[in-house]
Amino acid sequence: MERLSVNQITVKHWSFEETVRGLARHGIGWLGAWTGPVEEYGTRRAAALLRDHGVKVSSVCRAGFFTGRNPDGGGLDREANRRAVELTAAIGGDVLYLVSGGVRDDLDLPRSREAVAEGIAELVPYAASAGVRLAVEPLHPMMCAERSVTVTLGQSLDIVERFEPAHVGLAVDTYNVWWDPALHASLARAGDRIIGYQVCDWLVPQPHPTFGRGIPGEGAIDIPSITRAVGAAGYTGPIEVEIFNEGVWATDPDDVLATVVAGFGRHVLG
Rank of each mutant, 00 (worst) to 15 (best):
M1H: 10
E2M: 11
R3Y: 02
V11C: 01
W14S: 00
E18Q: 13
W30S: 11
W30N: 08
G32E: 12
G36L: 15
P37T: 07
P37W: 00
E40K: 11
Y41Q: 12
R45G: 08
R51S: 14
D52I: 13
G54W: 07
C61K: 01
C61M: 15
R62W: 14
R62H: 15
R62D: 15
G64C: 09
F66M: 08
G68A: 13
G68C: 12
G73V: 01
G74K: 09
G75Q: 09
L76S: 02
R78D: 14
V85M: 10
A90Y: 10
G92W: 07
D94M: 04
P110F: 02
A115I: 07
A115Y: 06
A117G: 07
A121C: 05
A121G: 10
E122L: 07
L123S: 04
L123W: 06
P125A: 00
Y126I: 04
R133L: 04
P138F: 02
H140Q: 06
M142W: 15
M143I: 07
C144A: 15
S148H: 02
V151H: 03
G154E: 14
G154R: 14
D158P: 08
I159M: 08
V160S: 02
R162T: 09
R162Q: 05
P165E: 06
A166F: 01
H167V: 10
G169L: 05
A171H: 06
N176S: 09
W178P: 01
A188D: 10
G191T: 10
I195F: 11
D201F: 03
G212K: 07
P216Y: 06
E218W: 09
I223K: 07
S225G: 04
R228E: 11
G231C: 05
A233L: 05
Y235K: 04
P238T: 14
E240G: 05
V241Q: 06
F244N: 01
N245R: 00
G247I: 06
A250P: 10
V256R: 03
L257A: 09
T259P: 10
A262P: 11
F264C: 00
F264W: 04
H267P: 09
